[in-house]
Design a protein around this nucleic acid. Structure first.
Lengths: 336, 336
DNA sequence: ATGAAAGCGCTAACAA
DNA sequence: TTGTTAGCGCTTTCAT
């Protein structure tokens, strides 16, 4: 089943069929109709490989360390939604957690002649990324180091953290603790999620609460939040609110509070970051920051298609997060 | 950068280079060396599209409804591990939750000439799957309906459920409740996770506890477990153990027990199914059934490569699960 | 507006 | 063992 079969059935040339498929100009209405009918009748679908050999593969490659991360699923749903209206298809590939395996995955995408690459939080250094970007339209998501060679999308952690802090302060909190992570925790240096901790401190200072600043550096995992909360609660007086740097760690905070016999939000308010699925669960009801992965994914799709269409200048996009207030935050209780 | 460049640099023919790349026979040591040196010097990599046009694309396509499901990530890591030693690469594509979008995703894989397809819990009916399998080596994972047209891998829910039940009974439990899901909960009819409920009932009968059978049908979600537990606890006398059909629902059970002021495992033992990441968390420590997605993934890779190499007869694989005992199960307490 | 023909990068059949 | 050559299915000039 090839383009020749369609041409034969429609009684036209292969070139004509090709034009119809690609919505190229220079085909009469009658021609278009006949060809389309033939295509439908045969159930013909062009082979991507043959098309790729002459130009486009109509494929967008997405690189991620692993599937299984809920936030990535959101990004993908946005991307797929955006690409749905085009002729492009997204394929995903796992890069793993080592530079070596990631490189292999990137090569695999290039071998397959993808028309664009979306790299979600890649490990590769800027030089490497630029090498890829020279060959293929590239968009890097979640890295705060820009390059004129590729587009980028970042979440605006500064704004997100401000939203949390202003919310807590407006509720009347002053003694607000924060849980961040150690430098050497497997995150590339330029991921800079430290922006959250930085912003926490700045907002505290701006409001004249410099003396109340209490930061614990563990990790963004549930267990890190658990340990961090333990340390914060051991201080006297204990904080009336805890801003955990991620939802995962906020879950650990909730566990620690529960074990300590403290209730949320009456004794301590808790806020997270990321708006993961569990945060929305009625039994958790965590106030958090929504990064809107779907918007990021849609934007990524749009920017990549623009690149494929010829845009050369780099675009850097910052997605503004929003605050999702749930039951885990409230004014400080009388006991605090 | 093509095969011609390599041939020119090495001073040999394209065919010779091609043979070296494919480890074909009929090349002298000297020839192989010269060609390999040229390949390295140029950093040449063959284009998958061109290869696909003449035969193989060296690509295995994986279809899944969504990424973001931890169990799928495990399957993928097994698959990737298996394919690592071969020249094949796995690419993933999302089929979504509607038959329409899934079909489009399958078509996309076929358009891209993948050499094999792994379908994880597809929505498509058997007829459709067989249509695909006629064109491309196909393996269906997680569906209990077999076909001579494609290979399949299923988890052995019967054995897994028996492991849970025998464990609870060995601990001394008699009043064991079970939470399953409603038929019409979005699962294809032939997914048959009802095997878990069926096995629960059978084991209860086999041990002479037919009178104690207590099944609630809600859903396999956290919220379903929560509601299910509420209903089971309202019975008198209440069960001393609850076997939830999934870890997700077991989490809901834990919440319900906690709210009811009952402790786990002193008042009630709880067991789940799937061994998700949260089940392993020290704060949860849920006894559950490990399906070993990695083994499934590795097996899938092996079977697909066999098919690609020419095997025609269908193979059906059942992966035996294992019990993971954690702190959520213990002998019934004195109060029970 | 339509079609003929060249060629994308590779593999495979055949010759040498 | 090595090289020549004819395509794979499509797109893209370039004639007509």
């Amino acid at each position: 089943m090839t383009i020749s079969d369609v041409a034969k059935l429609a009684g036209v040339s292969k070139a004509a069929v090709s034009k119809v498929i690609r919505n190229d100009y220079g085909v009469s209405e009658a021609m278009r109709d006949r060809v389309k009918r033939a295509i439908d009748e045969l159930g013909y679908r062009p082979q991507a490989a043959a098309r790729a050999l002459r130009g486009r593969s109509f494929t967008i490659g997405v690189l991620m360390q692993h599937i299984g991360i809920p936030f990535y699923a959101e990004i993908m749903s946005g991307l797929v939604e955006q690409l749905e209206e085009s002729d492009y298809q997204a394929i995903m590939i796992q890069g793993g957690t080592r530079a070596k395996t990631e490189e292999r995955a990137i090569d695999a995408l290039m071998d397959r002649q993808v028309d664009g690459i979306l790299m979600i939080a890649p490990l590769a250094g800027r030089t490497q990324l630029e090498r890829v970007a020279r060959e293929i339209p590239t968009l890097v998501l979640g890295r705060h180091d820009r390059s004129p060679a590729y587009d980028s999308i970042v979440d605006d952690d500064r704004t997100g953290s401000e939203l949390v802090m202003e919310h807590l302060i407006a509720l009347g909190h002053r003694r607000i603790g924060h849980i961040t992570f150690h430098e050497d925790h497997g995150q590339p240096a330029d991921h800079k999620p430290h922006l959250r901790a930085e912003t926490y401190e700045r907002v505290m200072r701006d409001h004249g609460f410099a003396d109340e600043i209490a930061v614990v550096a563990t990790s963004y995992s549930e267990e890190g939040g658990y340990r961090g909360a333990h340390e914060l609660l051991s201080r006297s007086p204990r904080p009336t609110a805890i801003f955990a740097g991620s939802d995962e760690s906020a879950l650990g905070v909730l566990t620690a509070l529960h074990e300590a016999g403290l209730s949320v939000p009456d004794d301590v308010s808790v806020a997270g970051y990321d708006n993961t699925r569990l945060a929305a669960h009625p039994n958790i009801a965590l106030t958090t920051v929504n990064q809107d992965g779907a918007v990021m994914g849609r934007t990524a799709g749009r920017l990549l298609l623009e690149r494929v269409e010829g845009r050369a200048a780099a675009v850097h996009f910052s997605v503004t997060p929003s605050l999702v207030v749930r039951r885990s935050t409230a004014p400080p209780g009388p006991g605090a």
